[in-house]
Amino acid sequence: MSEPGRSLFERAAEVYDFKAAVRARAPIAGLPPVQDPQPPVGERGPDASPPPLPNRRGVIDRDALAAAGFALLDDRVTALAEEFRLVKRQLLQAATAPGSIARDRMILVASALPAEGKTFCAVNLALSVAAEKDFEVLLVDADVAKPSILALLGLEDGPGLMDAIADPALDVEGCIIRTDVPHLSVLPAGRPGNDTTELLASDRTRLVLDRIVTRRPNRVLIFDSPPALAASPASELAHHVGRVMLIVRADRTSDVELREAVALLGGCGDIRLLLNATAMASGGRRFGSYYGHEG
Rank of each mutant, 00 (worst) to 15 (best):
L91H: 05
N218V: 07
P192H: 05
L65M: 00
N276A: 06
A263E: 15
R249Y: 04
S289D: 05
L161A: 04
A79T: 14
E3N: 09
L53H: 10
E136H: 09
P4C: 02
R206T: 05
T214S: 14
L108F: 03
T197I: 00
T205W: 02
N276F: 04
L92N: 00
L237D: 09
A151C: 07
L170H: 14
I101V: 12
I28E: 10
A81Y: 03
A26E: 13
A81K: 08
C175M: 07
L246H: 06
S100Q: 05
M162W: 09
L8S: 14
I212K: 03
L275F: 03
S7E: 08
E83Y: 05
N124M: 08
V15K: 12
L86P: 03
L275A: 04
T78H: 08
A151S: 15
L221F: 00
L207R: 06
L265T: 14
E116V: 06
D63L: 13
R103S: 06
K88L: 04
V140Y: 09
G117F: 00
L161K: 03
I149H: 12
K133V: 11
G242Y: 11
A263I: 12
A21V: 08
P39Y: 11
A115T: 09
R215P: 01
E173M: 10
V144M: 13
V123P: 10
K133T: 11
A238E: 08
S185F: 00
A115L: 09
T96L: 13
D167A: 07
A145V: 13
A279V: 11
Y290F: 09
Q90M: 05
P217G: 10
V248N: 11
L221Y: 00
L152G: 01
L221D: 04
E10S: 00
A131C: 05
S254Y: 07
R76S: 01
D47P: 02
G99D: 12
N124P: 02
L184K: 12
A110L: 07
I149E: 14
V244A: 03
E236T: 03
G284Q: 12
P226V: 13
D75G: 10
